[in-house]
Amino acid sequence: MKMEDDAMPDMSVEIAGVRLKNPVMTASGTFGSGQEFSEFIDLNRLGAVVTKGVASVPWPGNPTPRICETPSGMLNAIGLQNPGVETFRERDLKFLEQFDTRVVVNVCGHSVAEYVDCVEKLADAKRADLLEINISCPNVKEGGIAFGTDPRGVEEITAAIKKAAKQPVIMKLSPNVTDIAEIARAAEAGGADGLSMINTITGMKIDIRRRTYALANRTGGLSGPAIHPIAVRMVYQCAQAVNIPIIGMGGITDAESALEMIMAGATAVSVGTANFHDQTTTLRVVEGIRDYMEQYHVESIRDLIGCVR
């Protein structure tokens, strides 16, 4: 579709004072730090790159098999393998310096002290625009989800991280709770600048040929289109419950699934598992949203955020 530059719909959004050229980001853990995908797509066209979870020191992750496919989805139990924040800063953030996109650094830890340590080590990292705090990983025994399922714990860890962080703090929430709105309110009360949701849903697959768990970790996190309606529902619930921006994720594969999330209340969206299926998914989503806006004469994407109430 041909349009004059000044007639292009405005796709920019703002999260905690950080402007994104469009609302399409990558979901942590599915995109590395962008280097591998930069062979297939132009990272400059993304609203933001969300990097794989990084901790204060290197983590070895879980035994293999770490993933398996499920209908319209997959289970993963990587176990937050990461090279540690020092290497991450020197190598990964340095790589991202060359691109005109926002960088959201996902942070993980086993304890409040470890999260705080990592956040402090990122304090003077200029390339880190936002921090996304993973308190929802279902695949590590300590930390991760243990912090994300109790409202009081969520508020406390959010407050501790906010105190140490120099960048705005986005808390990444787990769907493995009874009332996600309650958790969202706790994060907001702790001072969170935004929410990311949803992390994966705990699941299990049995390998009937081997008569054992398909994953070495026994359980894993379910992602992909299979969880999209759950994610939309939870984003919607939290959008009604809090006044901070929400980054929506869970099964986004195309413009339609992204727009659903935005209309339910997400300011931006993250594409995750679909990157494995098609390395160019993020760009298809950007183009698809633009096409929709042109077709329906939407001047600003911001007019669509939370338009369904």
């Binding site: 599915t30 591998e36 098999p65 993933i67 494995f276």
Partner: peptide, 26 residues
């Protein structure tokens, strides 16, 4: 090994190495 991305991003398909790997740092 079971893979998800096939291009080095997802860390699904790791094997154990005798020495610390330059990329993974583990």
């Amino acid at each position: 090994e079971k893979m998800a991305c096939g291009i080095g991003a997802c860390l699904s398909c790791v094997c154990r190495s005798t020495e610390v790997d330059g990329h993974s740092k583990v």
